[in-house]
Design a binder for these strands. Sequence first.
DNA 1: CTAACGTACAACCAAATGGTTGTAGATCAT
DNA 2: ATGATCTACAACCATTTGGTTGTACGTTAG
Lengths: 102, 102
Amino acid sequence: MDRIFRALADATRRDIVRRTLIDEETVSQLAQDYAMSFAAVQKHVAVLETAGLVTKQQHGRERLVRANPAVIQRAQALLDSYEELWQSRISRLDALLSGDEQ
Amino acid sequence: MDRIFRALADATRRDIVRRTLIDEETVSQLAQDYAMSFAAVQKHVAVLETAGLVTKQQHGRERLVRANPAVIQRAQALLDSYEELWQSRISRLDALLSGDEQ
DNA sequence: CTAACGTACAACCAAATGGTTGTAGATCAT
DNA sequence: ATGATCTACAACCATTTGGTTGTACGTTAG
């Protein structure tokens, strides 16, 4: 989970996730649009891959990068569990305010 | 957004968020349950506070830490937008498979 | 075959991170 | 008033991060 959130804590990497969710792209295609070296983008993709957020598939000399929705859902599930917690806090506070003892 | 995900990329900080979502706690109360110094926990709280994920309220010599659901929702919203993207990819693939040209 | 392309990877660097200890200021209890 | 408690903050350290450049290797095109 650390790695997933860590990987998402960078604008370039979030953009790569966004783009590869829409459609698979090669590392070169990705790299073209960022103001940094190819190697830097390669490292970003590696971070995402280690976190499981994207997978790479070899296709000739190219590597097709594609996002992995299942891992994004794990982050979503955690935030959703947080949402449940504060909803229950709100419920308790409501109960208090309404004088409902149970 | 970087700061929000960065702050969530640590198990101790996620646990602090979880606990302070349920109920507010002082920095000392939080610190008691982790195998690290008080100062280290203080730093974790500071990271969360900088990201807006928690707020501190002075109460005598204590500081009450409480999570801020609104900021968690911003992270949720981003992941939800990702979900929409891959859902639309799935729709396009379905359309292709069914031979629907539009 | 050879040149260009796409990728991988190592080495290096500055800055940030996650921890420590130590010191000091408020506040509370006795 | 004094001591204990809660917090803040600085200084320090090892590790990680995010970037760079350079080199090498497999693949495609001419």
